[in-house]
Amino acid sequence: MSTLEIKNLHVSVETEDGEKEILRGVDLTINSGEVHAIMGPNGSGKSTLAYSIAGHPKYQITEGEVLLDGEDILELSVDERARAGLFLAMQYPVEVPGVSVANFLRTAKTAVDGEAPKLRTWVKDVNAALERVTLDPSFAQRSVNEGFSGGEKKRHEIAQLELLNPKFAVLDETDSGLDIDALRVVSDGVNRYTAQGDRGVLLITHYTRILNYIKPDYVHVFVAGRLAESGGQELAEQLEAEGYDKYVKAAAAL
């Protein structure tokens, strides 16, 4: 049983007019076996939260902690966090020219496991993971994300999720830009991952659409850099009907 605890997290970015605070005290605890959905309007800081957990250098943590099984991961480098069991499926996966998917996946798997995967089964595993997200095995020879369509990039993130099998996965709008078939493929991947029973998911999304496929245990409303409300599935339905208006107004009134 693992725990990812976010405590009073404050995060700023450097802007032309100086420091700008984006996250203004986020508190959230995710236990393994749980799926948490975070929903919020554009610009509310959802990606900032995701990147801050992963350790992107652009974001400065000014206050608070992120603990993985009690250990403060904010002290760790990006790669150390990943090796500790964190995974971020990015809203905009990065293209890395010249680095083949096959080489990338093998290097990542070796890093995360601390030993090289068995050569014989590995190629099969990669092909199977790609096929499960309906990517042709030929993608293994292409450069990482280069020239991939938006949907292919997202499916590639899910293939990585399955191959690297982290303790906790942060999925930043993995559903956006997907057609209905791809949405199902991606959801199936996430569900296979959670079906192991001891993995935690932080699912960031705009749309309740994906929640028809992935059933969250908790739904959080994220507005203006913090959690405005938490509840269950019914909260998602309420958001679907009413939008974020009420929360945005309340946040503005603060």
Partner: peptide
């Protein structure tokens, strides 16, 4: 951003740099 993406998959910084340089020339 290239380095961040690779590192976020557990790949150490020096290894990530190697991959990027190889990628740069591999073309």
């Amino acid at each position: 951003e290239h380095l961040f993406y690779l590192q976020s998959r557990g790949i150490e910084e020096t290894e990530a740099r190697r991959l990027v340089v190889h990628g740069f020339f591999n073309d």
